[in-house]
């Protein structure tokens, strides 16, 4: 049995270049058993590259990757990763055979996952005939079928209805309770807020990282709630009020970073101002 200290997997100062384009620039990530690590960022931030690198689908140009080995990795790619012309059961059969899950343990696992995903009544349906949410849940089941030590999920809840998102989160919680380290990319900041660690990426670079609480305190400069923005370029609307970011002294208003959304926008503005 490996110690928990040894069971830390992740990226260590990883850079990935595709030709002249740097997709990931000196990014580190430590996934711990029983914890969810959320990778957030907009389109083209480098989330998928980071996860593919961790899954072994992309070679880092620089830096190193540590994983528990292929047999102990579960990967759910962005494009769902289910075989559309196979039924739900046939998808499970194929992945189980590839992962070496057989006999009673397969029967038990199949029953457990189908029940958790609500797919028990759809075992004969072709994967391509499932709704988006059901397909995502099937893909998730396939990724965690063999009880991997490291579960890598690339935007598992994108395009999924709110009820299915809750189901997915329940399954993620169950996986971490069983001791899996979960690394997931997401565009939903409310999901990231529930993670143990958050890594925010922007154009391949680390924008901000830490626990969700740490991230709120690490926002550079100051964020204030104001009724009207003083500098529109550094302000954003939240409901009926505005948030105003200033790099140094707080402007008028109440200083506050309410959540990850504020933190992400403020960190992004700080980066823009620094690079300007």
């Amino acid at each position: 049995m490996t110690s928990d200290a040894a069971r830390q997997w992740g990226l260590h100062r990883v850079t990935v270049k595709y030709g002249d384009t740097t997709a990931l620039d000196n990014v580190s990530l430590d996934a711990r058993p029983g914890e969810v690590y959320a990778v957030v960022g907009g389109d083209g931030a480098g989330k998928t590259t980071a996860l593919r690198c961790l899954a072994g689908a992309v070679n880092p140009t620089e830096g190193s990757v540590s994983t528990p080995g292929r047999r102990s990795i579960g990967f759910m790619p962005t494009a769902a990763g289910v075989w559309g012309d196979l039924s739900v059961n046939e998808n499970i059969d194929f992945v189980a055979a590839a992962q070496g899950v057989t006999g009673q343990s397969l029967s038990d696992r199949r029953e457990e996952l189908l029940e958790a995903t609500g797919l028990t009544g759809a075992t004969s349906r072709l994967a391509r005939q499932l709704s988006g949410g059901m397909r995502q849940k099937l893909a998730f089941s396939l990724a965690m079928l063999h009880r991997p030590d490291l579960l890598i999920l690339d935007e598992p809840s994108t395009g999924v209805d709110p009820v299915s998102r809750i189901d997915l989160w329940r399954m993620i919680s169950r996986a971490t309770a069983d001791g899996a380290a979960v690394v997931m990319a997401t565009t939903y900041l409310d999901e990231a807020q529930r993670a143990s660690q958050v890594l925010a990426l922007d154009a391949g670079e680390v924008l901000i990282e830490g626990t969700p609480a740490d991230v709120l305190t690490r926002v550079p400069g100051h964020v204030s709630i104001v009724d009207a923005p003083q500098d529109r370029a550094l302000a954003w609307r939240r409901g009926r009020t505005w948030r105003q970011w200033s790099p140094e002294d707080p402007p008028s208003g109440q200083p506050r970073v309410e959540d990850l959304e504020d933190a992400m926008v403020a960190a992004g503005l700080s980066k823009e101002v620094t690079h300007a």
Binding site: R52, F75, T78, G81, W83, A98, G100, L142
Partner: peptide
Amino acid sequence: QNGTIEQLAVMPL
């Protein structure tokens, strides 16, 4: 096209 080749690439096959 379906993105499952990525899945195959990371499976222990």
